[in-house]
Each structure stands twice: as C-alpha cells, then as structure tokens.
Simulated scan of single mutants.
Amino acid sequence: MSQNNPKDEHDKPLVSYRKITKSFGDRTVLKELDLDVYPGEKIALIGPSGSGKTTIARLLMTLEKPTSGTIEVEGEMLWLMPRKGKLVPANEKHLHRVRSKIGMVFQHFNLFPHMTIQRNVTEALVHVLKIPKSEADERAMRMLERVGLQEHTNHYPSQLSGGQKQRVAIARALVMQPSVMLFDEVTSALDPELVGEVLDVIKGIASQGEMAMILITHEMDFARDVADRILFTDGGVIVEEGTPEQVFQNPQSPRLQTFLSRFLNGSSDGRTGSRVAAGAEQ
C-alpha cells in the first residue's frame, strides 16, 4: 500500500464526481456516482465486467459525456463552463485545457508505428504543449529512463515487446506532467510473463507520491500493494470502499464477498490471487 496519501481533513479534492449518471440507450452503467480523489491519492477500482469502472475513467478523459451530474478537476468544471453568470456546455477549448491535467494509459498501447520511441514520447510535448524540441527530447529521455527504456529511444514499436510498448505508453502520459493519472486495465492485453515488468513500473511511480492515480485493475495483489483506497463497483454504483486491509480482509457486502471468493488463493494471510480469473472489463 502506498505510504504517501496526503489526505487529511483540510484537503480539497483534486477530482470530484457529483451525482454522475451515464446511460447508453436503455442501459444505465453509472447511477448517481459520487467520488472524490485527493491530491497524491492512489485509488483502485475493482469489480465485475460491466460494473462501470472503465466508464468512470472515460468520463474524466472526455471520451464519454455524462448523462447527468458534474465532474470537477482542481475546482474547475470539466463538462461545463461559466458564461455570463451561467454554466453552459463546455466548448472544445475549455475541455482541452482541463483535460490537459489528466493522463491516461489504456489497455492497448496506441503508439504511432512509424515513429521512434523517442518521438512517440515527444510528439505531444512539441505539438500540443509547444515545448522546444531540445527540451522535449530531454524530458522524454528522463522519462524513458524512469521506465527502463533509455536504450530503446531509436527503436520503433514493432521492435519492442508488449510490456515495453506499455512502458512507452506510460512514459508518454507521464511526460505531460498530469495532476492525475488513469490506468485502465493496462496489463490485460499482455502475455502473463510481461505483466510484472509493467506493474513494477507503476508501483515505482506510485511510491514517489507525486500525483493522484486511478487504477482500474483485475490484479488484486497489485491493487492491495499500491492503493490507498479500494472501491468495489457493481451495477453502476460503489458498493463498498475502504483501505486494502478492510476490503480484502473484512469485506462487508455479500456482493464483494462473492466477487473476492472467486479468486482467493487460500493463503493464510488472506491475500488474493494475482489476477481475476474472469470478468475483466473490456
């Protein structure tokens, strides 16, 4: 578990979801969700397929729009903006500015196949943040060293393993210096032998306590080791939340007990198996 959670009674949330509902046609995947994420806090979202975990992240990244409710990032509305004393739907300029505070790493790497690893990491720095190329190259090199890929800067994605590609994707998101990072099932597309190297990188980043993280994961031991707070979602609501010890060692709700029972490994300390056998949200 992270030891860097700075949350106290005086903290203001970095991210706030208020009464967020999201529907796709007749199907409601989030039901009046309330959630606060504090500066430096590491939150893990666990739950069965279709429980709303990925939708929580996609709303924050503006990949989906809420049906109702509000989201704030550092005290500023995400989907709404003030105009003449009223809140109106945000324009693209407002969305882009607030979204720049958020980084996300997806299940799939989404690297540019025709660009070197170095250029994959610097592209947004140069063309979005308008940082001079020399400075962007320096920042990229520091970040690639941080994820253990400093010797692969001139390689292309096709020359890397799946785990290395995901580490590039992590470096590309981190180099933008976001206030909060979202990790959406980042190991689900990897071969089992490559999972550890990616999780170790994320653990290293989390241990430095620099930024808030929302981790959507089916790796239960990873969630236990990294998160300050675990949230179990099911049916579009947060059914239960607490510290890793509370959630894994003393689950209160029958739904969480059933969920965890599918992959308890029977060890005496109550640790879960490393990966949910089924039900990872795609």
Rank of each mutant, 00 (worst) to 15 (best):
Q3T: 14
N5V: 04
K7Y: 09
D8S: 12
H10V: 12
V15L: 10
K19P: 05
T21A: 11
D26G: 12
R27I: 14
V29K: 00
L30A: 09
D34P: 03
D36P: 09
D36Q: 11
K42W: 09
A44P: 08
S49R: 12
L59N: 04
L78P: 00
W79G: 13
L80Q: 13
M81W: 01
K84T: 07
K84Q: 13
G85H: 06
V88F: 06
N91S: 05
H94Y: 06
L95M: 07
H96L: 15
H96F: 13
R97H: 11
I102V: 14
F106S: 02
F106G: 02
F112M: 14
R119K: 15
E123C: 08
V126A: 03
H127I: 14
E135K: 13
E145V: 00
H152V: 11
H155D: 13
H155M: 14
G163A: 09
G163P: 04
Q166V: 02
R172T: 12
V180L: 08
L182M: 06
L182P: 02
D184G: 09
D184H: 09
A189I: 02
D191H: 10
E197M: 07
K203A: 14
G204F: 07
H218D: 10
E219D: 13
E219K: 06
D221H: 09
D228V: 08
E240T: 03
E241G: 03
T243V: 05
T243W: 03
V247S: 00
P251M: 10
Q252Y: 00
F259I: 08
F263G: 05
L264K: 15
L264C: 12
L264S: 15
S267A: 15
R271E: 14
T272E: 11
E281R: 11
